[in-house]
Design a protein around this nucleic acid. Structure first.
Lengths: 225, 225
DNA sequence: CCAAATTTTGACGCGCTCTTAACGCCCGCG
DNA sequence: CGCGGGCGTTAAGAGCGCGTCAAAATTTGG
């Protein structure tokens, strides 16, 4: 859930924005002037700040500057002024986007999505799967078993990747074969036996009696964490 | 030096933009239609794409979509259309900003700075990476090995940069090739071998048995501090 | 316009991975 | 009780990927 701080001195705009944003699933906090905006931003971290430039107490650009002293939160500026000087100043002070009033709500929402998309793109997913005997870090492509790194060949990794991404789910042989080797190899069930044995030898405590890479006879395989 | 790809079918605009941007220290490449734009972007990685929506061959939104299939390069859209539908479509397709013509050049430049700032800001957290045998200062672009400065060629630095920014993470060959040389070179795994050998010769204590630049056969490379 | 540095290209040998085949086991079925 | 299919295991040859070196082509800098 993304949280947004809306800063505007016009109660109508604040209220309208808050309702619209909440309606789209965002968490909204509001502020009516610069000081309380800075205070609110310090109080609780937000994902985006929507900032009107025409505030009663502090100049909008100053708000941006003071916010940027300690925070890298994306700032989307609203303004009634069309002059390009204001835009340049605000953007160079550290704003990320600038919309002039009157603006379309769908445009505002689209620009919000663009900003948020960029911010979550850069965040690395920490997708790690853990079992009783080994750990798979999908982002790093790293497998650890009792403190030791386990090396995988490309084919081994491909199979492991599919398996751990579908825990407790039955993967048919054809599914594995077509995804790893291509549709032309859909009948080479031999390959699976060889590589499944390899995976178990590397990852299972007792390769003879596997606990994580389970064979479903006649159907396929199942990975249970 | 930041490189920009300018895409517009109006020669006057292309020319004016190119001159202005070059005057501000950017490296500029140009394209007149969608296909050549995609081709140009694939040929050599750029830091920003400035894209006009009204292209003769492909719809602008399609260009964005196809670019986003393999690249995360920031896209700044220019358009003569003021309709908010166009804006929403372009932004949701993956554009980062949207300016309607006619626009002020200083506003364009300010928005460019904002985009570029955001792209470098987010990575500024750790400026120096240290290993047992050498130190990399990302901000200064300086490498030190046992008190001695180590010189790197541009390509060598690009690779090193990607590697040290993703410690312990496996970087696939395609990832390196597309980010350093562009997607058109995704199959030239030869280059990687040559340059990885170069990096190891310059940075590893024993280039023959690397401890920091590890090869994951068939998959890619991994940097371990 | 020349010289140096850098990038690109090609060739070679080695080691590892993939592929393939053979064999034994367990289980269900006739 | 004998048979066959599906599965696990192992081993060996073929082929590919990697590191290395060196030379050609291109770019950079003076």
């Amino acid at each position: 859930m993304n949280s947004i701080l809306v800063v505007d001195d016009d109660p109508h705009i604040v209220r309208a924005l808050a309702i619209t944003l909440k309606g789209h699933g965002y968490t909204v906090t509001t502020a009516m002037d610069g000081e309380s905006a800075l205070h609110a931003a310090a109080q609780r971290p937000v994902n985006v700040v929507i900032l009107d430039l025409g505030l009663p107490d502090i100049d909008g650009t100053t708000v941006i500057t003071r916010l940027r002293e300690w925070s890298a939160v994306p700032i989307l500026v609203l303004s009634a002024r069309h002059g390009s000087n204001d835009k340049v100043e605000a953007l160079d002070a550290g704003a990320d986007d600038y919309i002039t009033k009157p603006f379309g709500l769908d445009e505002l929402l689209a620009r919000l999505r663009a900003i948020l998309r960029r911010n979550t793109d850069s965040r690395e997913e920490t997708t790690t799967i853990e079992t009783s005997s080994f750990t798979v870090d999908l982002a790093k492509r790293q497998i650890t078993k009792s403190g030791q790194d386990v090396r995988m060949t490309p084919t081994e990794w491909n199979i492991l990747d599919i398996m751990v991404r579908n825990p407790d789910k039955l993967i048919t042989q054809q599914q594995l074969l077509t995804e790893v080797w291509g549709p032309a190899y859909a009948k080479e069930a031999n390959y699976l036996r060889v590589y499944m044995a390899q995976l178990r030898r590397k990852l299972e405590v007792e390769p003879g009696t596997p606990r994580h890479f389970i064979t479903e006879p006649g159907m396929g395989y199942r990975f249970v964490p």
